[in-house]
Simulated assay, not measured.
Amino acid sequence: MNITNPYAQAQWANSSSDHASAPSLFGALPFPSSPLRPSIHLFHFTNLNPDILNCTVVGPKSIPYFRVSNNNPSPNFTLFQNREGRSIAIVEWIGSAGPVVEVRDIIHKQFVATWLQLTSDRKHRLMKARDRTFVWVPQDERVGLYTYGTTTPELYARLSRTEGGVTLEITSTAIQEGLIECCVVAAVLMQSGRLIE
């Protein structure tokens, strides 16, 4: 057995002229056709009664993930609850300065216009969450959430109106980074039809 030549152990010839006939390891491996992308999870805002301020947010496998209810616990409030019934966010619609939002353990109580701030050209909305800034960008019939201030913006979520409701596509990266609650609240605010400035 030739220990210095690993090809000889497989009974391939050792001569330099025979290297061309040796099988290629690289030819046996699949060649990636496109870069890997994070998986997408779909959430549907359903049972709009009469609008998105009263709805159920259904996630993968048709499991209800969130419940949105207006005028609960009292008039002029929209309450967001997770599937265990725990309050995760609230929007207060009273006050001349505009509505106020709070997302438990993520967004401290502040004006919606501050949290979902319009850019100076009034074409995009910045969103701060988890010590990062993101940007909601309108694209045809959708609104995409991207990383902000990076050379290559990364898509985190996409919001679109569908027949019978609203759909939020959110990447596994965004979910792992704890942004799902913020995306759901932002979607409701942007699709509410109410002034949020």
Rank of each mutant, 00 (worst) to 15 (best):
K61S: 10
E163Q: 10
L36S: 05
G59L: 00
K123W: 01
E154V: 14
T114Q: 14
F26G: 08
L29Q: 12
N72A: 11
I88S: 08
R130K: 14
I3D: 04
E92W: 07
L118D: 14
L155V: 11
A13T: 13
E92R: 14
M190G: 00
L48M: 05
Q110K: 12
L159E: 01
E141M: 15
T114C: 13
G149T: 01
F43M: 09
G164F: 01
I88W: 06
V103C: 05
S62C: 05
P35V: 13
N47D: 15
W136G: 06
E169G: 04
L189K: 00
F31S: 15
R83S: 13
Q9V: 08
A97T: 08
H19F: 14
I40F: 15
W115V: 03
S69Y: 14
T46E: 09
R67V: 12
A97E: 11
S160F: 12
I106G: 02
E92G: 13
I40T: 10
T114P: 10
I106S: 06
F80Y: 01
R67Y: 14
L155P: 13
R161L: 12
L42W: 15
L29N: 12
S21F: 14
K128P: 06
M190I: 04
S16C: 15
T119H: 06
Q81F: 04
Q139G: 15
F26I: 09
L116P: 00
S120N: 13
K123R: 10
C55S: 09
E197Q: 14
I88Y: 03
N72W: 06
E197K: 07
A13F: 08
I170Y: 10
